[in-house]
């Protein structure tokens, strides 16, 4: 009787603590009492055994394979971009101005060249696209369109793309042509360009094909549809 009432009093607390006994993070002083309860409580014993199995299964390797290296290359491109150096450090003063500034503010000439090349290219092809400079750069002014019969890029799907810094102007032209895409904005956020597609806007499936074609090009480090724009 006495034992039973002690059991039922401990049970609700024990129930809450079982997962942390299972994952080994329970404070050492809480462990003996919990183990004692589990030993005497069939319900907790069953629960404990089941949670051990669940944890084992969750720790097992899944079928997902993640390409860490290629993901890191994308991050590296971002870190090495001039945008990274313009990024204001909002929190706390820089721990060491000498190391935090000198190394980081070193801009990559290749990336700068690419930014210039892309904009030149956009004009050379005669896109008739709206060109915005990156809003982060501080200006909001729109450039005028190059032709009066410019197709509107205000609606329709968009994609964000990061090009390799080794991409030549000619290769860039080929990439854009193959995807039926035009640069309509950028660079922003680590030299990411926004692409629009010549009207009529491609269907979702067609867009996915074009983005797949972009991704297939080794000079395209990153290509993703802009979710809000895809309908």
């Amino acid at each position: 009787m006495k034992l039973l009432s002690r059991l039922s009093a401990l049970h609700p607390r024990a129930e809450l603590l079982i997962p942390w006994l299972v994952n080994g993070s329970l404070p050492a002083d809480a462990e003996p009492a919990l183990r004692e309860h589990i030993a005497s409580c069939p319900q907790c014993r069953e629960d404990y055994a089941q949670q051990v199995r669940v944890r084992e299964a969750m720790r097992a390797e899944g079928p997902l394979v993640f390409a860490a290296e290629s993901s890191y290359q994308k991050l590296l491109a971002r870190i090495q971009s001039p945008e990274a150096n313009r990024e204001p450090r909002a929190a706390a003063p820089e721990p060491s101005p000498s190391r935090a500034t000198a190394a980081v503010r070193r801009t990559s000439p290749a990336v700068r060249w690419l930014a210039a090349a892309v904009i030149l290219q956009a004009f050379a092809i005669g896109l008739g696209a709206w060109m915005w400079p990156a809003s982060r750069a501080g200006t909001d002014a729109r450039y005028v369109t190059l032709t009066s019969a410019a197709p509107s890029y205000d609606s329709g799907p968009r994609a964000r793309v990061l090009f390799s810094t080794s991409l030549s102007v000619g290769a860039l032209r080929a990439v854009l042509r193959a995807a039926g895409a035009h640069i309509i904005d950028g660079p922003a956020d680590g030299d990411v360009y926004t692409l629009g597609f010549a009207p009529p806007p491609p269907s979702r499936a067609a867009l996915e094909k074009r983005i797949a074609a972009l991704r297939a090009n080794p000079a395209v480090l990153f290509a993703e549809p802009v979710q809000d724009s895809v309908r």
Binding site: G62, L64, F66, A68, E69, S71, Y72, L75, L76, I79, P95, S96, R99, A100, A103, V104
Partner: peptide
Amino acid sequence: AGRDSAAMKELYLLYHRRLARFLMRITTRY
């Protein structure tokens, strides 16, 4: 903090898989 990108890569590779798994539970989109 000293802008050592080799250290960055090491930490990134240490964490990539567990973050990917964790985040795939949120988004299901890689």
